[in-house]
């Protein structure tokens, strides 16, 4: 296992100090963990728990107060390691006066790529993150989600071995989130190692192989997602629809074996599943609208030209889309209770 480690962190401590050298924040306290080659590693934790700080320390943007970091076999302050790393910052800190093409070309140049290779990569990446329609627009005109996408594209410009993603899904709509997750999984399939941090539990659960949970700068949990989540003393049955007689029979059987029945229920889909299904149907059957029973809205006859996702998000609140929209716009409010 040790040889497989792409990142080794030992007793990493970071104290932010003010201008006079006085201690302000203990952002990270004696953190130790390894990230192995080819896995998707998730750093999970509420806001301010030190996830971003960890990333910046890994990249040498910050200097550790104490402890050691080895990343791709090099020190964090070594510049050459950056040749093999892609980094998506927390917010896409890009130059807003450049357009998408210029942005990718610029970062390509920083990897000393020749012009032809840059053109190829730029074109491929812009298409793969779905920004082909806006490639000549300056980034200051981009929406937050679009900025995230171009941010991901710039992180992948050098075809890196190790990808560090800081809150990759923040600011993305559910579709974009799904795309982002798919892309992260694809990166793993290509043999890359991915480290991502997030406070959105669902994202982490869906894609990560292993996670670490940070709280106030300290490591609280570390392990494989499936193992951490598996409840060893609960068994779940999933069957086709059963009528009440069968359920009663099953209860009998359980009683005979001295087992306790906790609940019998119809499973609910996640909101994400519902949303994605709705959008998919809208694409297949354009023009269909959801109307509340009581009264059709006055503008119901208009809007045939609207794009599927827009019409989906216009459906009334009780179907839940607006809540999910708000959630993805303001990630900070979606933090787990701590």
């Amino acid at each position: 296992m040790e040889n497989d480690a792409v990142i080794q962190i030992r007793n990493l401590t970071k104290i932010y100090r003010d201008f006079w050298g006085r201690k302000k924040v203990l952002a990270l306290n004696s953190l130790s963990l390894d990230v192995n080659k080819g896995e998707i590693f998730g750093l999970l934790g509420p806001n301010g728990s030190g996830k971003t700080t960890t990333m910046k320390l890994l990249l040498g943007l910050l200097f550790p107060t104490d402890g050691k970091i080895s990343i791709l076999g090099k020190e964090a302050s070594n510049v050459e390691k950056n040749e093999r790393i892609g980094y998506l910052p927390e917010e896409s800190y890009l130059y807003r006066f450049l357009n998408a093409e210029e942005t990718l070309d610029f970062y390509g140049q920083l990897f000393d790529m020749p012009a032809s290779q840059r053109r190829e990569q730029t074109d491929r990446l812009i298409k793969s993150v779905g920004l082909d329609f806006a490639r000549r627009r300056q980034l200051k005109e981009y929406s937050k989600g679009m900025t995230r996408r171009i941010g991901l594209a710039q992180a992948l410009i050098n075809d890196p071995e190790l990808v560090l993603l800081d809150e990759p899904t923040s600011g993305l709509d559910p579709l974009g989130t799904r795309d982002m997750k798919d892309m992260i999984l694809k990166l793993r399939d290509e043999g890359k190692t991915v480290v991502m941090c997030s406070h959105l539990l669902a994202d982490v659960q869906d894609v990560c192989d292993r996670i670490a949970i940070l709280y106030e700068g300290e490591l609280k949990q570390l392990g494989r997602v499936d193992e951490l989540l598996k409840e060893q003393d609960v068994t779940q049955l999933l069957t086709s629809r059963l009528d009440d007689a069968v359920v009663r029979d099953i209860e009998e059987v359980l009683k005979k074996h001295n087992a306790q029945l906790k609940s019998i229920d119809h499973p609910t889909n996640s909101l994400e599943d519902l949303f994605l299904k709705t959008v998919k149907e809208s694409v297949e059957r354009p023009g269909r609208r959801f109307l509340p029973d009581e009264a059709a809205q006055p503008d119901a006859s208009e809007g045939n030209g609207q794009s599927p996702s827009e019409s989906a998000s216009q459906t009334p609140a009780e179907s839940g889309e607006q809540t999910s929209q708000a959630e993805s716009e303001k990630p900070d409010e979606a933090q787990p209770a701590s």
Binding site: G60, L61, I85, Y87, Y93, L110
Partner: peptide, 14 residues
């Protein structure tokens, strides 16, 4: 201040 330099220095830029 805008941290755009963060993205630059995490490339192999001296």
């Amino acid at each position: 201040r805008a941290r755009s330099l963060h993205t630059v220095v995490t490339k192999p830029v001296r």
